[in-house]
Amino acid sequence: MAGNAKSADSLLRSALQRQVSRDPLGAAQDYRRVLEMDPRNKNAWYGLGVIDQQYGRMADARTNFEKALEIDPHFMSALYSEAYMLRSSDPDRAIELLGRAAAVDPKAAAVHLQLGQLLAAKGRKGEAGDAFRRAVAVDHKLLSQVPEELRDAASR
């Protein structure tokens, strides 16, 4: 079993290197090999999701992100990536995912900013103000990205 884990780790490193080197098909092949050895490898599911998203295969990307989240419901990268992907097609699901991500890492300014933007677009100004306030508390430079009508609430 230890040898299998070592092989899976080696393949994960190879897959990441292939992604960085712009060889997504080779990376996907490595991720699939990792999953043959360890079907509960959240990083391999996430990596496949990223590749599917790059190729516009959104349903497959979402399935892979969801598999990563079944394994680790607090997996920040999968929460954020799936939410970002769904922001226009399924904003309610994106809000739910970003809310979970914000609970996992309350100092993730980008998560709070994205959450605030989605909530504001849905007309949920009070919740949006709270999310923007949290984002700005972590990184004051984000205030310029807060909608003007909510800047006062965000800067308090």
Score class of each variant (00 low, 15 high):
residue 72 D to A: 08
residue 51 I to M: 00
residue 91 P to C: 04
residue 39 P to W: 08
residue 150 L to K: 07
residue 123 G to W: 13
residue 62 R to T: 10
residue 98 L to F: 15
residue 72 D to F: 06
residue 19 Q to V: 09
residue 60 D to I: 03
residue 120 A to Y: 12
residue 109 A to M: 06
residue 142 L to M: 12
residue 36 E to H: 11
residue 82 E to M: 15
residue 99 G to C: 08
residue 29 Q to S: 10
residue 129 G to D: 05
residue 110 A to Q: 14
residue 60 D to R: 15
residue 131 A to I: 12
residue 86 L to P: 01
residue 25 L to H: 10
residue 69 L to R: 13
residue 52 D to L: 07
residue 83 A to P: 01
residue 4 N to K: 14
residue 60 D to W: 09
residue 142 L to E: 08
residue 37 M to H: 02
residue 125 K to W: 08
residue 110 A to C: 00
residue 22 R to W: 04
residue 50 V to T: 09
residue 135 A to V: 03
residue 7 S to I: 12
residue 156 R to M: 07
residue 83 A to S: 06
residue 136 V to Y: 10
residue 17 Q to C: 07
residue 76 M to Q: 15
residue 91 P to T: 03
residue 37 M to K: 10
residue 33 R to N: 02
residue 115 L to G: 10
residue 45 W to G: 03
residue 141 K to H: 11
residue 71 I to R: 09
residue 123 G to Y: 13
residue 87 R to T: 06
residue 145 Q to Y: 09
residue 111 V to M: 02
residue 112 H to Q: 11
residue 50 V to K: 00
residue 24 P to C: 11
residue 28 A to L: 06
residue 54 Q to F: 04
residue 83 A to W: 05
residue 51 I to D: 00
residue 79 L to R: 05
residue 144 S to V: 13
residue 116 G to A: 06
residue 150 L to R: 12
residue 117 Q to D: 08
residue 2 A to Q: 15
residue 10 S to E: 15
residue 123 G to C: 08
residue 96 E to T: 14
residue 95 I to E: 02
residue 54 Q to G: 02
residue 84 Y to D: 07
residue 61 A to R: 11
residue 17 Q to E: 05
residue 127 E to P: 05
residue 156 R to E: 12
residue 134 R to P: 00
residue 13 R to S: 13
residue 110 A to M: 11
residue 110 A to G: 05
residue 148 E to M: 02
residue 108 A to T: 04
residue 122 K to P: 04
residue 27 A to L: 07
residue 4 N to S: 14
residue 1 M to L: 10
residue 127 E to L: 11
residue 66 E to V: 03
residue 76 M to L: 15
residue 62 R to Q: 11
residue 112 H to S: 15
residue 39 P to I: 06
residue 63 T to I: 01
residue 96 E to W: 11
residue 145 Q to S: 07
residue 79 L to P: 02
residue 121 A to V: 06
residue 120 A to L: 07
residue 79 L to S: 01
residue 149 E to D: 15
residue 42 K to F: 02
residue 23 D to S: 14
residue 77 S to M: 09
residue 153 A to S: 05
residue 68 A to I: 09
residue 58 M to T: 09
residue 37 M to E: 03
residue 68 A to V: 02
residue 86 L to T: 03
residue 123 G to A: 03
residue 139 D to A: 14
residue 131 A to H: 11
residue 118 L to I: 08
residue 5 A to H: 11
residue 13 R to I: 07
residue 105 D to T: 07
residue 10 S to T: 14
residue 124 R to Y: 01
residue 63 T to E: 02
residue 107 K to I: 03
residue 113 L to Y: 11
residue 15 A to P: 05
residue 72 D to N: 14
residue 102 A to D: 03
residue 146 V to H: 10
residue 63 T to S: 13
residue 49 G to I: 11
residue 141 K to D: 11
residue 15 A to M: 06
residue 136 V to W: 08
residue 130 D to E: 09
residue 88 S to N: 08
residue 65 F to E: 01
residue 60 D to Y: 07
residue 104 V to K: 12
residue 86 L to D: 01
residue 33 R to Y: 02
residue 78 A to T: 03
residue 87 R to V: 07
